[in-house]
Structures are given as structure tokens and as C-alpha cells.
């Protein structure tokens, strides 16, 4: 069953003024339960607008956002409870930390949900493990953490609400490679444990290729392509056309094929590429 659906959703900023800008143009998408979905697209293609529609921070001009088949913006609906079910992590979430301790900051969401002290405590301790913060951090001020740690604490703040759908807008932006690995790995292990739906907005094709089950490519407020990583990356021309990249390793395999080496090009991880090259070179491989 579909958990979260967008039906012909359009959204225009500052409608009716000279500054009006159509951000989304009748977008229809459905997000299956328990998948990791990568949302990719160029700057200004409407990704960030889309994620804010998902939890009702923005209301679509046309169309509807359905959660379990119900319009979240319906009259008499409770948007606050929708926001607990669809957790949204904004870009650079570390700037919203405000509590005296990391513990209190992560507990802010669960506390707003009205959970008991014990349950909140359990969730806080569980989520810091997912994101890889040590328990000592919990009693520290969030402002004494390093940049990467702050980011992880902020993500934990949403995870602790245990939303059915976790939406992250560029969770790894501006982090070093180790930081990226830690945060994305944390999200991945959280998803495997909780079986929740995860939607990640990203620019990095490598990261998306590694973690997501399904990719949605957006361009100028519309959905350009969607499908598995294999399907999307097997059509590199369409991606490069709109100014997006394909994973480096896919580009490498394409170049090999151009040189006349008969390799598969629907490959997007280094491990796969290694196996493929070994296969093509006739297994003459010394481990």
C-alpha cells in the first residue's frame, strides 16, 4: 500500500505578484513504504519545495498530498500530527539546535508529541546510537560539538520522533567525506531497523547510488524520470542534458566501452565495476 502520495501537485511562490515563480508543476509521485528514495535534481528544480509540501509546511495550490489515502491539508485535519508522522530534516539542520544539552534538544520533538519520560529517554538513547554520537555527548551543550556532530544531533532530533516517513533535505551537504559517511550510514541503519520510508534529497550521485532503492529525478518543477538506480543511470544522456552528473564509476565504464572494451555500463558502485572488469578481462585476477 502507498503510504505517501502526491497527486497533480502544483505550487507557485508569491502568486499574483511580479515575483511569482512556479516551483512545482503538476507533480505526481508515490512513495512506497520501507524504501529509501533519492530525490535528485538541479538547484532550483523544486526539490526543497516538494519536501515542505510533504509535511504540510506549504499547502499546494492545486492537487493534494495524501498520507494513507487522506489529504493532509483537508479541513479539520491535524497538521501537527502529520508532522509527527512525516519527519522533515531541513538543510543545515544544525542551525536549529537551541537547548542547553544535546539530550534536551533531541528530546524536544518527542516531548512535543506528549510521550512519557521513559519512552523519550529510550528514543533519545537509541537514536544517538544510530547517528553515532557517544552517550557522553548527551550532557554537553550542542554548541560545543563539532560541525559534523551538530548535524548528527539535529538529525537525531527528528529520528527520535520515529516518523513513518523520514525526509532529509541535503543531509550531507558541506560535510567532509567521513562526515558524509557517518550521517548517511546512520540514516541507513535507522531505516533498516525501523523499516520506515526515507526520502533523501541530494546532489551526490555516488551517495544516492549507494543508498537508495529508487531515484526520482526532477527538472524545472516536474518529474523527469523515476525508477531504480540501474534504470536511471543507464540513461546518462538524459541526466547530463539537464546539468546533472552520473556517478564517476559509471562514467568510467562508459569510457571503457567507448575504447572498445565490452563492459556493462549500468554499473554505479566501485565493487560492481571491479567484478565486471575482472569478468571481462577473463578472470585473470590475482587476489
Amino acid at each position: 500500500m502507498n503510504k505517501l502520495e502526491l497527486k497533480n501537485v502544483s505550487y507557485t511562490y508569491s502568486a499574483g505578484t511580479p515575483f511569482c515563480k512556479k516551483a512545482l508543476d503538476s507533480v505526481s509521485l508515490s512513495f512506497e513504504k520501507g524504501q529509501i528514495i533519492g530525490l535528485i535534481g538541479h538547484t532550483g528544480c523544486g526539490k526543497s519545495t516538494l519536501v515542505q509540501l510533504l509535511n504540510g509546511l506549504l499547502t499546494p495550490d492545486e492537487g493534494a498530498v495524501l498520507l494513507d489515502g487522506q489529504d493532509i491539508n483537508r479541513k479539520g485535519g491535524d497538521l501537527r500530527s502529520v508532522r509527527f508522522r512525516v519527519g522533515l530534516v531541513f538543510q543545515y539542520p544544525e542551525y536549529q539546535l537551541f537547548e542547553e544539552t544535546v539530550y534536551a534538544d533531541i528530546a524536544y520533538g518527542p516531548k512535543n508529541m506528549g510521550l512519557s519520560k521513559e519512552e523519550t529517554d529510550r528514543r533519545v538513547r537509541e537514536t544517538v546510537q544510530f547517528v553515532g554520537l557517544s552517550e557522553d555527548c548527551l550532557s554537553m551543550s550542542p554548541f560545543d560539538l563539532s560541525g559534523g556532530q551538530k548535524r548528527r544531533a539535529a538529525v537525531a532530533g527528528i529520528m527520535a520522533m520515529e516518523p513513518e516517513v523520514l525526509v532529509l533535505d541535503e543531509p550531507a551537504a558541506g560535510l567532509d567525506p567521513i562526515g558524509r559517511e557517518e550521517i548517511l550510514g546512520g540514516i541507513f541503519s535507522y531505516q533498516r531497523k525501523k523499516k520506515s520510508t526515507v526520502i533523501i534529497v541530494s546532489h551526490s550521485m555516488e551517495d544516492m547510488a549507494r543508498y537508495s532503492d529508487r531515484l526520482v529525478v526532477m527538472n524545472r518543477g516536474r518529474v523527469l524520470m523515476q525508477g531504480s538506480c540501474r534504470e536511471v543511470f543507464s540513461r546518462p544522456e538524459r541526466l547530463t542534458e539537464i546539468g546533472l552528473d552520473i556517478p564517476q564509476i559509471t562514467r568510467f565504464m562508459l569510457a571503457l566501452r567507448k575504447r572498445g572494451i565490452d563492459v556493462r555500463t549500468d554499473i554505479f558502485t566501485v565493487e560492481e565495476a571491479k567484478d565486471e572488469i575482472i569478468r571481462v578481462s577473463g578472470g585473470r585476477h590475482r587476489a
Binding site: 509535511n55 509546511l57 509527527f84 531541513f90 542551525y95 536549529q96 537551541f98 527528528i158
Partner: peptide, 26 residues
């Protein structure tokens, strides 16, 4: 920031005056 805190369930528009003032801290 308001949007980010709303996503965590902050409520700025209901409750007593004291509660609303407190909701501004985040």
C-alpha cells in the same frame, strides 16, 4: 527556523500567553 521547529511539533498559535512566549525560545 520557524518551519524547522514546526517540523518538530512546535506550536506557536495556541495555548496561554506564557506558553506561547515559551514556544518562541526555540
Amino acid at each position: 527556523i520557524m518551519n524547522a521547529q514546526k517540523a518538530r511539533g512546535s506550536d506557536f498559535s495556541s495555548g496561554s500567553l506564557v506558553r506561547r512566549a515559551k514556544a518562541l525560545i526555540p
